[in-house]
Design a protein around this nucleic acid. Sequence first.
DNA 1: AGCATTAGCTATAGCTATTAGCCTTAGCTG
DNA 2: CAGCTAAGGCTAATAGCTATAGCTAATGCT
Lengths: 229, 229
Amino acid sequence: MTSFADDIEAGGADRRSRRRAETKAEILRLAVEEMAEHGAAGLSMSRVARRLGVQPPSLYKYFDSRAALYDALFGIGQRRYLRTARRAAEQAPPGLAGFAPVLRAGARWSAENPVLAQLMFWRTVPGFVPTEQAYAPALELRRDWGERVRAAVERGELGAGAAGEEGLDLLASLIAGMVSMQLSNEPDAGFEGSRFLRHVDRIPDLFAAAYPPPPGPGAAAREKRSRTT
Amino acid sequence: MTSFADDIEAGGADRRSRRRAETKAEILRLAVEEMAEHGAAGLSMSRVARRLGVQPPSLYKYFDSRAALYDALFGIGQRRYLRTARRAAEQAPPGLAGFAPVLRAGARWSAENPVLAQLMFWRTVPGFVPTEQAYAPALELRRDWGERVRAAVERGELGAGAAGEEGLDLLASLIAGMVSMQLSNEPDAGFEGSRFLRHVDRIPDLFAAAYPPPPGPGAAAREKRSRTT
DNA sequence: AGCATTAGCTATAGCTATTAGCCTTAGCTG
DNA sequence: CAGCTAAGGCTAATAGCTATAGCTAATGCT
């Protein structure tokens, strides 16, 4: 969170390119600090410049506009969020049982990066629309979830509708709700001990309640297990 | 939505007070139009003044600051939202069966007033913090829900935990999720045919799945009913 | 009819983003 | 190592923003 060094690709191995990338990363870091203080929509180029010890117009050597700065942060956030989810997915068990760890990882990331999460999940900065490129990871993540849900359906853990657009919309709404409540009510609370994010672990059961699996082999065992949990 | 005449109390029966109240209502109306175009955080006093056909400083005769204008809209929105929910509650059946109509009424209101909903449910306007007075209806609504859930618990339709702070947080998260998805993804879509808000009717069942009622008289009948629904 | 208040105005201060254009110097290249 | 390019800073200026101060005319109550 603190450093953006890895998110800026240096144009070349030049010393100049390297220094330029460092400055860009520093600007992004200061921008996030600014947003943490004044709200995601309250980013001021002038204040960032002051923090950097530079006159405001100099910032435009690095980012074409305030919107471009937002877009960079939006894109970095989306990439990191996707990466976080995929890493969690690697270690998660297959099927429905793997939902909770992945959801939890995403929720934790959002709690630890409230400013970026606000920018990404509510689009509330007037005049800012993310570029297609910056938005791309969000579409990838949605595809990931599509596959994950489909796998759970094939395992007989969820009803067929769960893997459709409708089911994915419901699943997205469930996680969005808890993250939204967190961001608007206690953005600085962190993940552990959050009033709202502790409910994230319940999402798989809630989702399964909305799309119950068809009765089949193993249904009785699953039923018993879910009752004791 | 179009008129704010009923939301501004005229100081007296004076002709002056009446005209003043009319102008205030007109300003609020134009402010919402502005916000619909430029985003909730993109309200500009100058643009509102231009629309009203007046110089910017003249607005300050009616609202002390931009924040005061936001606060008025925030308070009006909260009052209307509370009123909408209570009206729906009057006609709703008692117990868990009454949840859906009330939730739906709130969701519909949010879809029809996306700008006010954004201002109220995400607090994303930099520097704006609602006054206690403007926020009060939100607390009342939470108390209403507390009673409604408690009644359902007493009827044996929900588990005991549902009526605690934790349960209410979960319920709030469920509705917030769908409204949030609506506001960020298709704010201009309206209620009917919304991808996300159609899931609102499922909330009671989801909530009941999280706080299942203790087995007791009528449990079998309830079980059968919920399966056929 | 008289007069206080209201509701407009202009001018101004101090922010903001952004563009234009200048100048120095860092550092790559021949 | 010399020279040149372009990176990266600067100042000045424009246009827009919120907000305050203070003036003026007319509204409409008493």
